[in-house]
């Protein structure tokens, strides 16, 4: 058996990441000759139908009052109990923060390793995984030797697309045995974030680093982002100098983005920044140093001072737009 942990969105549907987990679990189940069991929290809703379409015929629903408002560690406790009871060959989950936390607790409770951020899983003697390190700039091939293999998968993990739908999904409600004496954190407040364009979803991000020079220097980046229907981003130097809020930071310890266009102004292209923007479809770099790593990796480059180039670009856009 391969267990696939399914994160659900507010409507109860599997998230996109959970869909990829199911696909990988199906592939792995195929290789091992093992069936796939999806595991989720709560009520069935449309989940059995969704799973049937994905060719998954077994669903375990974990239900317990503590699971409703506990952080993911408690989900991990429930998962560990399920693993102990059913003895799967592997448990897969998405490499999202929440699922990773649940899997980390589960692996600790089971006394087995956990391979996080995997792009590939290769069953064999022993099993091997490929995982991302340092935000994905490096790949690590590792042995994963354990009685049950726990892994979280990053987007882009192997999938095979087409599958035959399952005729029927067997739904099994399991009430996990959660330790009543274990001290737990409890959710006491949940505020929805205001909607609107965020750094993570903007189609264009105009981003500035040390080369912008000051907090005021970002005015021209704001103006260009406005004209392009985009958001403003920054490097860690800008955050550390207090020029921009941390919410604007792109990179390993900021936000990972994949806009259609990333405009990198006065940013050298350190790996910790690069991993945040390397999934952009195209990059335009503006830098006084033609040898900067960002300039070499960009799609288009302009050699020059941010405060000469950007005002000229803004003026040119306005000129072409006409009066």
């Amino acid at each position: 058996m391969v267990l696939a942990w399914i994160e659900r969105d507010a409507q109860g549907s599997p998230t996109a990441a959970a869909g990829e987990v199911l696909a990988t679990a199906r592939d792995l189940g195929g290789e091992l000759g093992a069936e796939v069991t999806a595991v989720a929290l709560g009520e069935p809703g449309d989940l059995p139908d969704d799973l049937a379409k994905q060719g998954v015929a077994h669903l375990v629903l974990l239900q317990h009052e503590l699971l409703a408002d506990a952080p993911p560690a408690t989900v991990g406790e429930a998962l560990a109990g399920l693993v102990a009871a059913r003895g799967p060959a592997a448990v897969l989950a998405a490499a999202t923060p929440e699922s990773t936390e649940a899997m980390a607790w589960a692996s600790a409770a089971l006394g087995v390793p956990l391979a996080t951020a995997c792009t590939e899983i290769r069953p064999g003697e022993p099993w091997e995984v490929t995982r991302e390190r340092a935000g994905g700039i490096l790949l690590e091939d590792a042995v994963l030797d354990a009685p049950v293999r726990l892994a979280t998968l990053t987007g882009g993990a192997r999938t095979t697309g087409e599958t035959a739908p399952a005729p029927e999904v067997a739904v099994d409600v399991v009430v996990p045995d959660l330790d009543p004496t274990l001290p737990r954190a409890r959710l006491v407040e949940h505020r929805a974030r205001s909607t609107g364009m965020t750094l993570a979803t903007a189609p264009v991000v105009v981003s500035g680093g040390r080369g912008v020079g000051s907090a005021e220097g970002y005015a021209v980046l704001e103006e260009l982002a406005g004209l392009l229907g985009g958001a403003v981003g920054c490097s860690r130097v800008a955050t550390n100098n207090g020029w921009r809020p941390h919410a604007d930071q792109v990179g390993l310890t900021g936000t990972r983005i994949s806009p259609d266009l990333y405009v990198a102004c006065g940013i050298s292209g350190a790996t910790q920044h690069w991993v945040g923007c390397m999934s952009a479809r195209s990059i335009l770099a503006v830098n006084t140093d033609p040898e900067a790593a960002m300039m070499r990796r960009a799609t288009w480059a302009v050699v020059g001072d941010v405060h000469e180039v950007l005002p000229a670009v803004v003026a040119e856009i306005r000129r072409r737009a006409g009066p």
Binding site: P113, E140, D145, R297, A298, A301, E316
Partner: peptide
């Protein structure tokens, strides 16, 4: 039971950078 075998660089498939120009004069090309 998790043991590193080797590290490797992620394959990068980016085309050559196109230089659009120098300074303010690059604005039309941009």
């Amino acid at each position: 039971g998790l043991r590193t075998r080797r590290l490797r660089h992620r394959p990068e498939a980016r085309a050559e950078t196109v230089l659009l120009g120098q300074g303010a004069g690059a604005a039309p090309a941009v």
